[in-house]
Design a protein around this nucleic acid. Sequence first.
DNA 1: AAGTGGTCTAGACCACCAC
DNA 2: TGGTGGTCTAGACCACTTG
Lengths: 265, 265
Amino acid sequence: MSKTTPHSPSDAEPLPPLAERIRQIVSERVAAGELDDKGQLPSERWLTDHFGLARMTVRKALWQLEAEGFIYRFHRSGWFLSPPRFFYDPTRDVSFTKAVTDQGRRAGAQVLSTRTIAAAPEIAYMLGITPRTPLLIINRLRFIDDRPVFVEVSHVIAYRCPGLADFLGTDVSMATIYERHYGIGLRRREIYLHPTALIDPHARDLRLAHGTPGLFLRRITDDTNGKPFSFDHEYWRHDALEIKINFFDRPTPPIPADPAEDVQT
Amino acid sequence: MSKTTPHSPSDAEPLPPLAERIRQIVSERVAAGELDDKGQLPSERWLTDHFGLARMTVRKALWQLEAEGFIYRFHRSGWFLSPPRFFYDPTRDVSFTKAVTDQGRRAGAQVLSTRTIAAAPEIAYMLGITPRTPLLIINRLRFIDDRPVFVEVSHVIAYRCPGLADFLGTDVSMATIYERHYGIGLRRREIYLHPTALIDPHARDLRLAHGTPGLFLRRITDDTNGKPFSFDHEYWRHDALEIKINFFDRPTPPIPADPAEDVQT
DNA sequence: AAGTGGTCTAGACCACCAC
DNA sequence: TGGTGGTCTAGACCACTTG
């Protein structure tokens, strides 16, 4: 809690890196019960004064902790302690809602927009339909415990789900809607996934600053008869998920992140 | 190529964002053949002068293009055009070397260090061995087309591969070494993977600035008899790979990244 | 209205890499 | 040794969120 001495670029630097000092302040407050899960950190200006540094210096350190997934921010409203990552098994999980609730957390959804377009040739080919067949595009924001975690853009073959747009408010789980109203079960066919920067408008929807690191996922889903059913894009916060792939049904204990000091090079 | 007018914070801003203007300069040079794959960008100071902006402003834009995967940098030596991502299928690829060469690229490896430790209880449990059994820890830097892309830390049960350290220089593929010298084939059991920041010493090994976005992967590998064999950590550059999961053997065409303007919200 | 982060300036010096 | 990015300063004003 004591004020740290200011330092100029030419000072010797025996202190731990700034990011570690900030991490420690945050950890202390958590331990003291002053900061719970998703709690707000001291402001950048407070940290600036506390450490006697320039604001850009503090911000740089915060960005590192953000890249790590330790803290996150809501655009222009503050820095917060990151909640635990959601475990996602792309080879098994077909319903986000089910996977989230199975992990004891709360899934949410908000429809951002819907519209209908004519299928472009390459999408038509992937989905096994005639080009220009109407596709329903559903743009939804998905939440875990009230934090927006990804934007989902679904391309659904419109004639297979007549009136689908009317059901969107009834249940957060699309999988449940497909099953109850149309008798359609889902299974995955193919997924691509890579880290990238999230830009507007998706960044804005997620309350992220333009250019924040994120994950981009695209996927084809079949129905249980093996017929292509939908084509989706997802834009994830980078700190919201941990991908887990288990190749057998026998459960294994989670792999520890740091079982040994393996960093020695 | 014309000099852009300087702007103050209060100027109107009809120009595209700075990142897009930089992207355009780079794209133009690529099109003109002045900049090939992995070629070096104009320096930050050149861009600063060219746009008439402060250096921090230019750097911020470069960081966004880096987060996106469009450009990357070698620590303190310059900005470069990113090569294409490597496709990695965690459900199928057991040999990095094979997967890379199958994609027409060159795989490389450099041993950073090896050492032997006594297995901690939780690792011993995962690997089905007695605690304190000797484990060989192999630290390697892996390359695609001469660019370092990840640091691999392998924990191998030492008695299953006597003399393994001596073979490390003979072949870049560990899978090949295991098969030829010990008659051991591999298959995956479980993988965890999440985005995070890469810090020293891994960042240094990869020639990345401390705190750059990356991917952290951990994995248990079995032998083909289903017996646990090794436990590995991998620290990836975030821009080097695209994860691809195909659930069936029938090949499907790659899913296009942007088949339609799906961003409307 | 007050407080937050977001952007930007116009410099300086440091650490490292390549020649 | 010269050029690169990396760090840092000490401000300023802007855009937005929150009370």
